[in-house]
Design a protein around this nucleic acid. Structure first.
Lengths: 199, 199
DNA sequence: GTCTATACTCGGATAGAC
DNA sequence: GTCTATCCGAGTATAGAC
């Protein structure tokens, strides 16, 4: 129960908190990211911050949602409107994906937050559980549109690409030398059997 | 500093602890796996257990090492002897990999432990940091032997396969419906351009 | 709505007896 | 080598004043 009554203010403040949190973790990294630390960075006391979120877990889950929102806007992913009539150009999606990943390698804190929650979300009680289920579907939906293999069904293809993206992040966290974007790029190129020769 | 002096006993006991821990987590899952809980399962007090390991982190890192040891024996991975003269049959490696993965989907607790530590190991101070660096090399070394793509350099190919394996685990933790082994199997098959027709 | 203060829990680590 | 006991820190959550 975050806010009751006049929640116009409440919602706005919530947004503001999420934006700031996102910024802080992106900038300063995910240390032990405690509610207290975030609160200070946001300019609130710990109790003040928890006035807007039920728990730390909920806060962080919402942060990830907000991040997706940003990424979608900034890099133009198909999001939930993947069903709309516009036939999306696979090459455009491919390009967006690469740019998101390239961007990710500049915000290790967010990547760590994401990966950490991805594991904790194994527990169905965790607020992030549903988030990861939904997000997985969205991500795979986008990848399916780029499916370009005759030996792999599109859904399997999509799941594999999602796995590569997530798995590379784990490698990169341990060894920041790993060129996530470059590798995905090579993979996508290799999978495009038929060279996308322009007419 | 786990043991000094007559460490014959110490080493043996350490092994025994690791075996039991492995068994407990495999069987009962990784709950919040605290040292205390493991200690009880192992038949020791918390302090008694920590007599053999410097910290919780070290304990769990060693557990992962022990697990790799088992997997290597049980499924015949190339391990560190990947440099030996014997030319290893790619098909055999491929088969081992599938079997390891199939096995993994029966021990969610171990998969969770692995994934959790993989993230925590981002910190170079973490005992598991080196473990993951080394293990990554070993795993990729094995995958390189199976490289079967003319459009991808073997090291990139290997890194991608590692990423798929790790990434699928994350998906599977959130949704145990995901057929990790099946997907990897399809991928490997798809990547084998030239059908491995026997002479 | 926000703060201060506090309570509570958990878990890891350590001291010291046996 | 193992236990009991204890300590200590971290971190979340809550109560209550303003």
């Amino acid at each position: 129960m975050a806010q009751r009554g006049s929640y116009a203010k409440g919602v706005a403040k919530r947004e503001e908190i999420l934006e700031r949190t996102l910024d802080v973790i992106a900038t300063e990294g995910y240390d032990g990211a405690s509610v207290k630390r975030i609160a200070e960075a946001v300019g609130l006391s710990q109790a003040g911050l928890l006035h807007y979120f039920d728990s730390k877990e909920e806060l962080f889950t919402e942060v990830l949602r907000k991040r997706d929102e940003h990424d979608g806007e900034q890099f133009g992913l198909p999001d939930d409107r993947s069903k709309d009539a516009d036939p999306v150009d696979p090459a455009v999606i491919r390009d967006s994906v690469i740019r998101v990943i390239r961007h990710n390698s500049e915000v290790p804190g967010l990547v760590e937050l994401f990966s950490r929650l991805a594991v904790e979300a194994a527990n169905p009680e965790h607020p992030a559980h549903d988030y990861f289920l939904e997000r997985g579907e969205t991500v795979r939906g986008a990848f399916e549109l780029t499916a370009a293999s005759d030996s792999l069904p599109p859904d399997v293809y999509a799941r594999i690409l999602q796995a590569v993206a997530d798995g590379l992040q784990l490698q990169w966290l341990v060894d920041p030398t790993v060129d996530m974007a470059g590798i995905i790029d090579q993979l996508l190129a290799a999978l495009e059997q038929k060279p996308a020769a322009t007419p």
